[in-house]
Every structure is written in C-alpha cells, then in structure tokens.
C-alpha cells in the first residue's frame, strides 16, 4: 500500500520513510502543502500522514480541500500541536485520526492498520482467500496450512492482490507500489517478484493478462 507522507522536517521524514518501508508500505514524501494537494490527485494512495506545521500554510486547509473534492482516503494527522482546539478542528475538518509527536512507531503502525481496516471494511487484520492466509500485522503468510516466508516486496504485492481479488492490477500500479516514484524501475523486476510468488504459492494463482497486467484468480485449477 502506498502512503502519502506530508512532512517538512527532513530528519523526521527520513526516519518515517525507513520505518514505513520496513512495515511493508510504500511511502511517498511531500514537503509542502502544495505538493501534497497535487499528489493526492493520484488515486493510488491508501492513506495520508499529514504534519500540521507545513511551511506553506495551514495543513487544515489541505484536509478541507481534499474532503471537499471527494477524496475519501484516510488522513492521519501527525503533529507536535497538542491543543484540544487544534485536534478538534483537524478531526472536524475531515481527518480520521490525530497523533501527537513524539510517537511510538508501533502505535503509528497499529493506527495505520486500523484506518485501512475501516476503509476496507474488515473486522481484523487477516486476509483469507483462495487457500492463502495473510496476517497484515505480523506479515505471516500461510498457504494451505503451510507457512510461507515472503520478502517485503512479495508481501506488498500479495497484499494488494488479496485486497483486490479477481481484478486486473496494471503493471504501472504494481511498479509504483513496489518502488515508488523514484525507485529503480528495472523492466522485469515485477515479473521476478510475481515469478517468486507463483513458486512459493501456486503457479496458477496469479494470472498474467497480456499487455495489461496481473490478476489474482480466486477460482483456479490446481
């Protein structure tokens, strides 16, 4: 899942990016509100983490504008401002959660998962589909009751497939998910990860749709 991180402090952003990647997310960084508004037009983000103290103006306006234009992606406000009225204004403007710095990364991770769970209308963090069980919290994966160990990128791809079963995910979508805007785009990298997933799970599980992308098939012949 791609996360839009809006944070102007370079050091903090760096640490967050490292952490979020390790948690199995693909963060993209914006340092100003203007950038954030442009980036949010890209529908590929699953969540936005927003710092309120942005250099070019009030982050609260960003929330209002996004909500006004119908963007429903969860927005988690992460800020050093702890006053009640700021909290209330942010939540009332359309933010889904409000965390005050300093934060514990475990809490941040849990809250991100909670927001996604609500967004995807799930009751827990376990995905079950076509014989695969995927735990989004501890990244534990089982296929037909057998433990399967996945790399970070494989986990990200499989999670995306399981959240959107029987739907074609384009190559570009999958590449952005794995490498971000400025990642290394070796043309065959996605193929390598898909190939590995097929090897670890089942060869027929992920179907190639030529010229378009890939699709997780829930009714497949073994």
């Amino acid at each position: 899942m791609r996360i839009l991180l809006v944070e102007d402090d370079e050091l903090l952003a760096k640490g967050m990016i490292t952490r979020l990647k390790r948690m199995g997310y693909q963060p993209e960084l914006c340092t100003t509100g203007k950038q954030a508004l442009l980036a949010a037009e890209d529908s590929g983000f699953g969540l936005m983490i927003l710092d309120l103290g942005l250099p070019d103006g009030f982050a609260l306006d960003i929330i209002r504008q996004l909500r006004h234009s119908g963007v429903i992606m969860p927005i988690l406000v992460l800020t050093a401002q702890s006053q009640l009225d700021t909290k209330l204004t942010a939540l009332n403007s359309g933010a889904d959660d409000y965390l005050v710095k300093p934060i514990d990364v475990l809490e941040l991770e849990a809250r991100i998962r909670v927001l996604c769970r609500r967004q995807q209308q799930r009751t827990d963090d376990n995905l079950h589909l076509a014989g695969i069980s995927l735990n989004l919290q501890n990244h534990h994966c089982q296929f037909q009751q057998q433990d399967v160990s996945l790399t970070r990128r494989e986990f990200m791809l499989l999670k995306e497939f399981m959240l959107k079963p029987d739907r074609i995910l384009s190559r570009q979508q999958l590449e952005e998910l794995s490498y971000g805007w400025d990642g290394d785009n070796e043309s065959n990298a996605i193929e390598v990860h898909i190939h590995n997933l097929r090897k670890k799970l089942s060869a027929n599980l992920i179907k190639t749709v030529r010229g378009v992308g890939y699709m997780l098939v829930t009714q497949y012949g073994i």
Partner: peptide
C-alpha cells in the same frame, strides 16, 4: 519534533 526524530 526533535524528540520524535530521536525516538523514531
């Protein structure tokens, strides 16, 4: 903010 950075 610096505390957050330290902790993170």
């Amino acid at each position: 903010t610096p505390l957050s950075i330290l902790q993170l």
